[in-house]
């Protein structure tokens, strides 16, 4: 059973069909890349699956459960985490606090626990802090622990978003252009990190324009163009697919 499956997923914005009848699936422990020209509808697929907006039609099945139309916090609670194409960190919070927020849905205490700091909330809080520190170390950002997120260098912000997403303890991780704006050295390091995360038992779906990254780490590539899936297969297959080449190079008039 695939971890995630969409059936005829469609998203319409006014008159624009951003995603058109897309069937895709992601299997356990796979790294799937979702590629396509600008405006192909890749981010919209992520948004429709994670509940940023409900799909116009079609279904989204996560771990055997129909989740289309679920609000985003539900999707996260169920185990889908994501990063954003335009980095969306909590800018005023420190790196550590960003990762702590990521653990929100894995901790439970609320107002009473916060005010009285009973044993349970203390235990949860201590665990959350320890884990946040571990995660920062894992992505190599320990030295920025107390720094406001918006002051971090660009590449580090992307890594922090990944740490924050991992903090939600997902079983499926969505990365929206994780290598965007990175230099070759940084994107190389990012590839190592993504491989390492997968090796720890994570299923990953990634939108990426950097072909070196796509070809380097994905098991399977899905290509979207104008909201439709036009190709799917191994990186080698997709690279040679005339339809893909046409989509990227433009249709010959």
């Amino acid at each position: 059973m695939p971890v995630l499956e969409t059936r005829s997923l469609t998203k319409v914005f006014g008159g624009l069909t951003a995603v058109n009848n897309v069937d895709l699936h992601v299997d356990q422990d796979e790294i799937v890349a979702l590629i396509g020209p600008n405006g192909a509808g890749k981010t919209t697929v992520f948004n429709a699956v994670t509940g940023v907006y409900p799909p116009s039609s079609g279904s989204v099945v996560f771990q055997g459960r129909e989740i289309s139309g679920f609000p985003p916090h539900k999707a996260t609670q169920l185990g889908i985490a994501r990063t954003f194409q335009n980095i969306r960190l909590f800018g005023e919070m420190s790196a550590l606090e960003n990762v702590l927020v990521g653990q929100h849905c894995r901790t439970k205490y609320t107002v009473v626990g916060a005010v009285f700091r009973g044993p349970r909330s203390r235990r949860e809080e201590r665990g959350a802090i320890a884990r946040a520190e571990e995660l920062l170390e894992y992505v190599g950002l320990s030295s920025y622990q107390d720094e406001a997120a918006r002051n971090l260098p660009y590449g580090s912000q992307r890594r922090l978003e990944i740490a924050r997403a991992l903090a939600t303890q997902p079983s499926l991780l969505f990365l929206d252009e994780p290598a965007a704006g990175m230099n070759p050295q940084e994107s190389g390091a990012l590839m190592d990190l993504i491989r390492q995360i997968r090796a720890g038992g994570m299923t990953i779906m990634m939108i990426e324009h950097d072909m070196k990254v796509v070809m380097g780490i994905s098991d399977r590539v899905i290509v979207l163009d104008h909201g439709e899936k036009i190709s799917e297969g191994t990186p080698e297959y997709v690279r040679g697919d005339p339809k893909v080449i046409e989509a990227y190079l433009g249709k010959s008039a």
């Binding site: 994670t50 940023v52 609000p71 985003p72 916090h73 996260t76 609670q77 985490a81 994501r82 954003f84 969306r88 960190l89 909590f90 800018g91 005023e92 919070m93 606090e97 702590l100 927020v101 990521g102 929100h104 849905c105 894995r106 901790t107 205490y109 609320t110 107002v111 626990g113 916060a114 005010v115 700091r117 909330s121 949860e124 809080e125 959350a128 924050r164 939600t168």
Partner: peptide, 30 residues
């Protein structure tokens, strides 16, 4: 009481909503 609320999971959820509501929801915050 306010300082304890703020320095907790609750205060972090509030601040997250302030900084970026979409990202806050993506962190599992209702």
């Amino acid at each position: 009481v306010i300082s304890r609320l703020v320095r907790s999971r609750v205060g972090r959820a509030w601040t997250a909503i302030r900084d970026d509501e979409v990202a806050a929801a993506a962190m599992g915050i209702n």
